[in-house]
Design a protein around this nucleic acid. Structure first.
Length: 400
DNA sequence: TCTGGGGTCCTAGGACCC
DNA sequence: TCTGGGGTCCTAGGACCC
């Protein structure tokens, strides 16, 4: 989808059309651009750029927070349209998808014709512009749709994949970021064609497994983990995390710990929604100077309970935070998923059973009345934080 | 200019096991 | 006293994607 977040915002507020619009937050906030209108891009604004930079380049732009729920909604609408064109659809992100058109020729005509129909129908049904790339591999299809933007269609005929890629900067290849681009530049490689001329062996020695993938990509192959698997095969999540950057760096232990508890609760909640039990808890800590550390601990058994995860994330925090040092960001993640509870849980099964029931009730109340309607004691700042020991799941006590 | 939040995958070293 | 080879699991950091 073209400038997806901005385009959705325009549907809800047509007065934004044709203007410089930046989605990501207020112009003076700590944050980055998640989407910029084409008008804003003319001034050099692009996604991932700090908002403050964007507002310097384009002071007259309209800065908006954005509406994630609307984007999710429209993503589903997009998905529905795509499914009319093939049973094999893979949503690669909210605004990007792959379709396998193999065998759809009798119904839709040749790929280029199908693409035109799709392009039109997408506009009719969603009011949004998209760009379409057609090729024999996912990777080349992706690159060609990038080249087709905005609002275009590009077909790379079979056999012409390498020729299409050759004149492009290596940076256009998915998986080649700033670092790889620079490394390649040091050995005189700028264009995909330069890369394609190198020996596979040389790239393997120089860049390891990644080098082999690069060699494949330069010829148009779906090389590397990004493009593994059939279109439409979706795998289960491997980690769940939440993080928060403070508006102002802080060394306030109570604020830090209550934030940590809040983040951990969010993680635990999603764990329960997905029906997973996690074994590894990871803490992320970023200091004022942007140095970042992660510290992980693997539990003897997996869990999805708030208090068990909070105990763990708090222990990691207390052990690793250099007290007094200002913190910019805190994060909590879990990984190492099981579909069932760790065996040892049976030992204190009764206690956990009660905790589980309480959490279920809390989850339901939050669904009904909002995230803030119920707070677990350890999620509060101040002396409440200690109460978690006597009251593990934060069940409302007599006084609360 | 000052750098979000949610993810995936890869590498490399160390512990531990047979 | 000197030290193989194969494997798995865990941890930390980093590149990259949207």
């Amino acid at each position: 989808m073209d400038a997806f977040f901005v385009s959705v915002e325009e549907l809800f507020d047509p007065s934004l059309k044709g203007k410089a619009v930046v989605v990501g937050g207020p112009k003076d906030a700590r944050g980055v651009v998640s989407a910029a209108s084409y008008e804003a891009r003319k001034f050099g604004v692009h996604s991932a750029m700090p908002l403050r930079t964007a507002s310097q380049l384009c002071p007259h732009a309209i800065f908006i927070e954005g509406h994630p729920d609307r984007y999710r909604d429209y993503s589903h609408k997009v998905h529905a349209v795509l499914q009319e064109f093939s049973p094999k659809v893979e949503m690669a992100s909210v605004d990007e998808a792959y379709l396998d058109l193999t065998g759809t020729e009798r119904l839709l005509g040749p790929p280029l014709k199908a693409a035109h129909t799709l392009h039109q129908r997408m506009k009719q049904r969603t009011g949004l512009n998209c760009s379409i790339g057609i090729s024999t591999s996912k990777m080349v299809a992706k690159v060609s749709s990038d080249q087709a933007k905005p609002n275009g269609i590009l077909w790379v005929q079979p056999g012409l994949e390498a020729a299409f890629l050759a004149p492009l900067d290596v940076r256009r290849l998915p998986g080649v970021g700033k670092v790889t681009e620079e490394k390649l530049q040091q050995i005189g490689i700028r264009k995909v064609g330069d890369l394609a001329r190198l020996e596979e062996d040389f790239l393997h020695r120089r860049f390891g497994k990644w080098g082999l993938a690069l060699a494949g990509k330069s010829h148009g192959a779906d090389a590397g983990s990004w493009f593994d698997g059939e279109i439409g095969s979706l795998d289960e999540p491997k980690s769940i995390s939440h993080e928060h950057t403070f508006n102002e760096d802080t060394a306030d232990a109570q604020l830090l710990e209550s934030t940590l508890a809040r983040l951990t609760e969010k993680v635990a909640r999603r764990l329960r929604e997905q029906g997973f039990y996690a074994r590894t808890v990871t803490l992320k800590l970023r200091y004022k100077d942007f140095t970042t550390l992660t510290r992980a601990h693997t539990l003897a058994r997996s869990t999805q309970l708030d208090h068990e995860l909070i105990t763990e994330s708090r222990a990691l925090f207390r052990k690793n935070w250099r007290a007094g040092e200002k913190v910019r960001l805190l994060g909590v993640g879990v990984s190492g998923f099981d579909e069932t509870e760790g065996q040892l849980a049976l030992i204190d099964g009764d206690k956990n059973e009660r905790a589980r029931k309480a959490l279920k009730a809390i989850d339901q109340i939050r669904d009904k009345f909002g995230e803030k309607s119920v707070k677990i004691a350890s999620g509060l700042a101040g002396d409440h934080a200690e109460r978690v020991h006597e009251n593990p799941v934060g069940l409302p006590g007599k006084r609360k």
